[in-house]
Computed example of a mutant assay.
Amino acid sequence: MSVTSVKSQRIQPGENPAASSSAAAARIIQKEERLVRMVVAIAAIFIVSYIPTCIMLLCYVVLNEFNPFGVYRRLLIVSGNIISLGQPISGSVNIIIYYKMASKFRSVFRRLVHLDRQEQE
């Protein structure tokens, strides 16, 4: 935050120092709000994708027959397949969230994938 505030508080010639510091503070607050939204979204997706794993582990502890050789073996296989899909989906969605919400990530990604024609020339 201190590095961002130092960069943001540079005063251009002819500017009012009080106006530029309040504008810089507003930009910092806006960046922090975007960062908080992004972190909350990523955390929520992570939690939602691991709920099936927690439920399966709870069933494994509570139910004696919830094992590969027990009565609930088919349910164990189905829940294992659902769990194996949830984690890659979580990782894929995280990349999309980073791309939409982080401007630096977006610019580096576009440069790496050669989507920015202007920067290549």
Rank of each mutant, 00 (worst) to 15 (best):
N81P: 00
R27V: 02
Y98G: 05
A23P: 03
L57S: 00
I89N: 03
R37M: 10
S84G: 04
N81C: 13
G70Y: 07
V48D: 01
V3S: 11
S2V: 06
H114R: 15
Q30P: 00
V48L: 14
V6W: 08
C59L: 15
L63M: 14
S90A: 15
G70K: 05
E33H: 03
A19D: 15
I47C: 02
E65W: 04
V113P: 02
G91T: 07
I83F: 01
L112E: 08
N16M: 03
S2A: 11
F46V: 02
I51S: 07
H114N: 12
C54A: 13
V62E: 07
G86W: 01
G86D: 03
R74Y: 15
V113N: 09
S92C: 15
A41N: 09
V93H: 00
P88G: 10
I28E: 15
R10D: 05
M101Q: 04
I89V: 15
V62F: 14
Q87M: 11
V62G: 03
I47G: 02
L76F: 13
M1G: 15
V40K: 15
V3R: 04
Y98M: 14
Q87L: 13
A18K: 14
R73V: 10
F46I: 00
S79W: 11
L57P: 00
K104R: 07
E32A: 10
L76C: 04
L63G: 02
V71G: 06
I51R: 04
R37N: 11
Q12K: 11
I96P: 02
A24L: 05
Q9N: 15
A25D: 15
S5F: 07
I89C: 12
G80E: 06
P68L: 05
A43D: 06
I95N: 09
V48E: 07
V71K: 15
P13L: 01
F46Y: 05
S92A: 14
E33M: 05
R106T: 05
L63R: 10
A19Y: 13
N67E: 11
Q120P: 00
I96G: 12
E119P: 00
V62K: 10
V40N: 10
L58C: 10
A19G: 11
L35P: 00
Q118R: 12
F69P: 00
I29P: 00
V6I: 13
V93Y: 06
E121T: 08
G86P: 00
I11L: 11
S8H: 12
L112V: 03
R10M: 08
I55C: 12
S2K: 11
E65V: 04
P68A: 04
I83Q: 07
A43M: 12
E15V: 01
G86E: 05
I55D: 08
Y50S: 06
P88S: 08
L58I: 13
S90K: 14
I51W: 07
S103C: 03
C54E: 05
Y60M: 10
I55S: 09
Q9E: 13
I82R: 00
Y50D: 04
P13K: 02
L115E: 09
Y72D: 14
G80D: 05
F69Y: 06
N94G: 09
I82H: 02
R73M: 14
I55Q: 10
P52D: 06
V62A: 12
I28Q: 14
S2Y: 07
F109L: 11
A24Q: 03
E33C: 00
E32F: 04
P13R: 02
Y50V: 05
T4P: 01
G70P: 09
Y50G: 01
S79C: 09
S8A: 14
I82Q: 04
